[in-house]
Every structure is written in C-alpha cells, then in structure tokens.
C-alpha cells in the first residue's frame, strides 16, 4: 500500500488535523520537526500510519543540500526505534543523494528486525554497494526478516549472494537446525550455488 493510501485510509479526523498543522509548521520552520517528529505516534496512531505521517513531515522540510542531510541525520541519531524507522522509510523520497547511506548502515548494524527491514527499503536497495547489500540480505535471513519485506532482491541477487545463503543453510543443517525457506527465493535462481547444499540435505 502506498504511503498516500495509508494516510487516506487510516488517518482519523484528529490525526489528519494534527498532521496538517504539523506539516504547515515544518514548511515554515524546518527546526520545528525536531519536537514534532517524536510526537507523531501519540497523535496519529501506531504502525503503518505512523510511518506514513513521519514521511509526510520529512517531505515538508524546506531545507536543501547539507542542511537537509544534517536535519535528517539528527532526527535519526536522536530518534527512538519508531522515529528511526520513519527516517529509513523516507530516505528515497528526500533529495539527499548518497548522503543517507550512513543511516542505512547504522540500521543494518542493529539487531532490531524492524530497522533491518526498513534499511533494505527502496533507498538501501538503490544505494548500498554489492557487498553491503548481500550482507544485509543474509542478516535478514539470519534474524528472521521475511525477504518479501525487502526491496531490490529481483535485481540485485547474484551468484555470490546465493553462495553465502547456501553456506548459511549448510551450516544450519550441520547443526541439525531448520533452514528458513526464504533462502530458496535466491537459490532457485542460481542452482549451481545450491549443488553442495542439496547434497548435504539429501544425506541428512
């Protein structure tokens, strides 16, 4: 569901009034977002509508260039988990070029599944280099983020990622543990990488 649809369908009348007033304030005073951004959840509700409202606030920031990058970075730095997720969801809609990458990299270092998933959204999928993207996907499988929730797999999966996932699955099998079914989303496309894994699975 697009962010606009979420706002159109899930925002209450009170929530809409609050968000309209808040975006107006941010348009005329970028710094106002520093105290409005943390207050989103208690004013519009939790979950998807909260993320969508935070994206709307970020899009209203009138700053450009380094000032915009600094504002966004500080919102992430001082944000709680929900605020950080809001920033990650907005990055591809903001004119920050590749300057949002440190934010994505930070989120990928956490073990918070909501942040890891959001880090591999449209921005992360477009900006991360091949090695970091592969590590991100592997981490998702490792911490239990469904690969259906991340962006770019169709385009960015490669033989090396398939090898990494096959090795991960082999290690799991050797330990007598379950292998997340999601690994086959990649391995089915790179069957050569999965040869050894299939052999191990048959022997087990």
């Amino acid at each position: 569901m697009s962010l606009d649809t979420v706002l159109a369908e899930r925002l209450s009348d009170d929530g809409r009034r609050w968000l309209d007033a808040a975006t107006d304030r941010v348009r005329s005073d970028a710094a106002a977002i520093r105290v409005l951004f943390p207050a989103v959840g208690r004013n519009v509700g939790r979950g998807a509508v909260e993320d969508a409202a935070r994206v709307a606030l970020l899009k209203a920031v009138p700053s450009r260039g380094p000032a915009l990058v600094d504002e966004v970075a500080a919102l992430y730095r001082f944000g709680d988990a929900a605020e950080k997720r809001g920033v990650l969801r907005a990055l591809h809609l903001l004119d920050v070029g590749d300057r949002g990458l440190p934010i994505v990299q930070d989120a990928l270092r956490t073990n918070d599944t909501r942040l890891v998933a959001a880090a591999l959204g449209p921005y992360g999928a477009a900006q991360l280099d091949a090695a970091a993207y592969r590590q991100g996907v592997l981490k998702c499988v490792f911490v239990g983020v469904p690969l259906a929730d991340i962006e770019g797999l169709e385009r960015r999966a490669d033989a090396e990622l398939a090898r990494m996932l096959a090795d991960f699955a082999t290690e799991r099998l050797a330990a007598g543990r379950d292998v997340p079914g999601d690994v086959w989303l990649v391995l089915d496309r790179f069957p050569d990488a999965a040869t050894g894994l299939r052999k191990t699975a048959e022997e087990a």
């Binding site: 520093r34 105290v35 409005l36 951004f37 943390p38 207050a39 959840g41 208690r42 001082f78 709680d80």
Partner: peptide, 10 residues
C-alpha cells in the same frame, strides 16, 4: 540543547 528533542518523546 538536546533536551527539547527528548522532552517530546512518548
């Protein structure tokens, strides 16, 4: 200087 950001939290 950073306190206002935190005073706004849930």
């Amino acid at each position: 200087d950073v306190l206002p950001r935190y005073l706004a939290k849930d």
